[in-house]
Amino acid sequence: MSAPYILVLYYSRHGATAEMARQIARGVEQAGLEARLRTVPAVSTECEATAPAIPAEGALYVSLDDLKNCAGLALGSPTRFGNMAAPLKYFLDGTSSLWLTGELVGKPAGVFTSTSSLHGGQESTLLSMMLPLLHHGMLLCGLPYSEGALLDTRGGGTPYGPSHHAGADGKRALDEHEIALCRALGLRLGKTAQQLETPRG
């Protein structure tokens, strides 16, 4: 049996959500667990996911086994009109087999997002990503206000999960508060997964 890991699954168009995923992974590793970074291929109105099996750069594409065997999940997407991006939704729509067998029931999960405008639908995007996770029976972990960066942020950050204001060109780097909140989510998911795995005597 492989060591427990947190799956950090995301879609990123311009790199901001991918950087958030890397920061969340660092938080997971601070908790002493492996962070498995995975992404999904793009889809379009002309075709379904027809990307090569291995992306040219960055994280590998996710498989159902990556999701099935994880100890917890961090799910990230840029916003698309206040909702998650289609490639991530396309992958989640194909997870019925895991729902039927209850593979994800009782596992911790969190969500994260990036937007080009400060009030560009961050919270509704985070909520939209929570819905399929609730259907899978996952235990949602947000960010409590005991995280000081949540009170100090002037960019992204919500109690529903980390967020990032990437700017109109998508090039604005994560600020110190956004980084802190990403790492806090990763740490929280890692610790929660370990606590749920610990037998109670």
Rank of each mutant, 00 (worst) to 15 (best):
L92Y: 05
V111H: 02
L98F: 13
G137T: 01
E103T: 10
P78M: 04
E123H: 12
M130W: 09
L131Q: 14
S96Y: 13
G102A: 10
G102T: 12
C70W: 01
L104H: 05
T95S: 13
P87V: 03
S77E: 05
A85I: 00
G94F: 08
H136L: 10
G94E: 12
L100R: 15
S77H: 01
M129K: 02
L127I: 13
G102V: 12
H135T: 08
P132D: 10
S128K: 04
S77W: 01
L98R: 07
G102I: 12
M138E: 02
C141V: 13
F91L: 11
N83T: 11
M129L: 15
V111W: 00
A74T: 02
L139D: 08
P87L: 02
N69F: 08
M84E: 04
T125V: 02
K68Y: 06
L98C: 08
L127W: 03
G137Q: 09
S128W: 03
M84R: 04
D93F: 12
A71Q: 13
G72A: 02
D66C: 11
E103S: 15
F81K: 03
G94D: 15
Y90K: 10
T113H: 00
G102E: 15
N83Y: 14
D65E: 15
G137A: 06
S128E: 09
K107P: 00
E103F: 06
T79A: 03
S97H: 13
N69M: 09
L127Y: 05
S77D: 00
H119N: 15
C141E: 11
V111L: 03
H136Y: 06
G82V: 03
